[in-house]
Structures are given as C-alpha cells and as structure tokens.
C-alpha cells in the first residue's frame, strides 16, 4: 500500500494537495534545488564508488593471479636450485606458467633504484621466477613446504603483503563512496524536513481549519507529503540528468592519466543513477510524513 501510495504521489504530483494547502514558494524552490543538488552529487559519489570498486577488483585480481619465487643461493648452487624450483612448479597443480626472469628483466626491475646501466651480472642478486596461476589457483602453504624441501634458498612471495594494503585502500575508497551516498541521503532528508517544517509552520492556520472540519491527520499529512515527494522527485531527476551528463563528458580514460582511469559508469552501470530520483522521493516521503505527524501532534 505504501509503495502504491508513493507511486501515486510521484505520478500525480501535487494536483490534489494544492486544493487545500496553498503553495509556499520558497519551500518548494528549496526542496527542488536541494534535491537537484544532492542528486547531482550522488551521481558523482556513485561513479566514484563504482570506479573504485572496479579498481579494487582489478588490483586484487591482477596481483592474486601472479606470484614470485626468489632464490638466494651461492653462485655454484644457483642453477641447480633454479632447476629444482622449476621442476617443483611444473608439477604443482594450479600453476599455469612459471618463467625465469632473464638478466634484462631483472635490470629493468632495478633500474628505478640503481639506474639503467648497472651490470646486474656482477651483483649477487637473487634469481626471480614469475608464476602465473590458473583459474583454479594453487595452495601457497603446500608449495612453500615443497620448495623448502627441494630448494632451501627459494622463497615464495604470493604478493599478499602488497595486495592486501592495495585492495584495502581501494575498498576504503569504495566505502567512502558509499558513505558519501548515505550522507547525501541523510542531508537530503534533513533539508526536506526543514522545508516541510517551514511549510507546516507557514500553514498552521490551514492545518487548524482542516482539523476543525474533521480532517484526519493522515489526510493533512498526505497533502504535504504529496507536494514534497513530487518536488523531490522532480528535483532529483533534474540533478541526476545533469550529473550523468557531467560524468559522460569526463575525459576518456586513455587520455586522462592513470588516476582518473575508469572513473564513470560502464555498461549496465549507467542504470544505477536512475535509482536516485525514486530514492529521493522515498526519502522525501518519509521525511515529510514524519515532520507532518510531529507537527500535527501539537494541533487539537
């Protein structure tokens, strides 16, 4: 029943309410503006949340599917231990590929710290082996045990140390986006409550007369709820449209630098912002209803 009532409110707007409650310009304008502004911000918060979600998934996925075996051994034993590790990896279920990094790749890895011309071959560097796991994945603890038995100088680094803080950071960003949306919702409710309270106060005499001629609280509340729900929906629809246009006009991911890469909506993600106007209407419905009944309790 509540949903039907809400739909009727959104569709019919204030057609019935305006019969008994006179329009009060500034509260209507305030509701329209605040709903539009909050919806506009909500679109960007939603875009940020979705983008960081994708980023977290990508980082987690990319780092989780690779690992490194580092072999630290005397020069005379290095090749033997490398062969032993490769043999272990070749028989380990869940590993799609294992590859010994050559000298050029090791030099490239060290270049940011030691410069490009370092003679890597003269340094006592560990040998690195890059592992790519398949979709099934491997058991890291089991692999560590086998490596320690076959190649005492081999250490498995499954990137957990790196992955966790990165994924945690991305998850925090996603959470921030969700919290922002929740705060926007609460702020919308607060602003609509203030507007509704102002309208209720401005129409105190109308409310009194309606009560005197036999109107129930639900009838009077409905008159205000209709108006504010309709206005919130209309304002949020406008704000959402502008916000989506703004996101659509953001620079392309390829040309915008790494930080902005992927910010925006992708595919079916464009449907998410369309939930904002009905959600704003629901927020307005309950905020105005609560404000109206609170006010009516003070009227005989």
């Amino acid at each position: 029943m509540r949903l039907l009532s809400l739909l009727r409110v959104i569709v019919m707007g204030e057609r019935n309410a305006s019969r008994v409650v006179p329009p009060t310009g500034f509260t209507v304008g305030l509701t329209l503006f605040s709903a539009a502004a909050m919806a506009f911000l909500a679109v960007f918060a939603l875009a940020l949340s979705l983008a960081t979600g994708r980023l977290a998934d990508r980082w987690a996925d990319a780092l989780a599917r690779t690992a490194t075996v580092r072999i630290s051994a005397p020069p005379g034993q290095m090749q033997a231990q490398t062969d032993a590790v490769m043999a272990v990896l070749a028989t380990t279920p869940g590993i799609a590929d294992a590859r010994v990094l050559d000298e050029a790749e090791q030099r490239a890895l060290l270049a940011p710290w030691l410069g490009p011309d370092v003679p890597v071959g003269d340094l006592p560097l560990p040998q690195l082996i890059e592992i790519t796991e398949d979709a099934q994945g491997y058991d890291p603890e089991n692999l560590r045990l086998r490596l320690s038995a076959e190649a005492p100088g081999a250490v498995l680094d499954d990137h957990t140390r790196w992955r966790r803080p990165l994924v945690r950071a991305a998850d925090r960003l996603r959470l921030l986006g969700v919290v922002s949306i929740a705060l926007i919702g609460l702020t919308t409710a607060a602003m609509i409550t203030l507007s509704a309270n102002a309208a209720l106060a401005a129409n105190a005499r109308v409310i009194r007369v309606l009560r005197l001629v036999g109107a129930r609280d639900s009838y009077i509340a409905r008159a205000f709820v209709r108006r504010f729900t309709g206005r919130a929906f209309q304002g949020a629809a406008a704000g959402t449209f502008l916000g989506m246009a703004g996101v659509a006009l953001l620079p392309e991911a390829d040309s915008a630098g790494s930080f902005l890469t992927g910010l925006g909506f992708q595919g079916a993600g464009w449907l998410w912002p369309l939930l904002i106007p009905p959600l704003a209407a629901i927020v307005a419905f309950w905020a105005t209803r609560a404000a109206a009944f609170r006010t009516l309790r003070g009227v005989t």
Binding site: R211, L212, V213, G214, A215, R216, D217, S218, L296, T300
Partner: peptide, 14 residues
C-alpha cells in the same frame, strides 16, 4: 484517539 475526534467533528457543525 485523534481519528475519533476527527470523525466526531464531522457530526458537529461549527
């Protein structure tokens, strides 16, 4: 209750 008051007022013209 408040709704009872509203209903009663419909039976009283003022």
């Amino acid at each position: 209750r408040r709704d009872d008051v509203a209903n009663t007022r419909r039976r009283i013209g003022v």
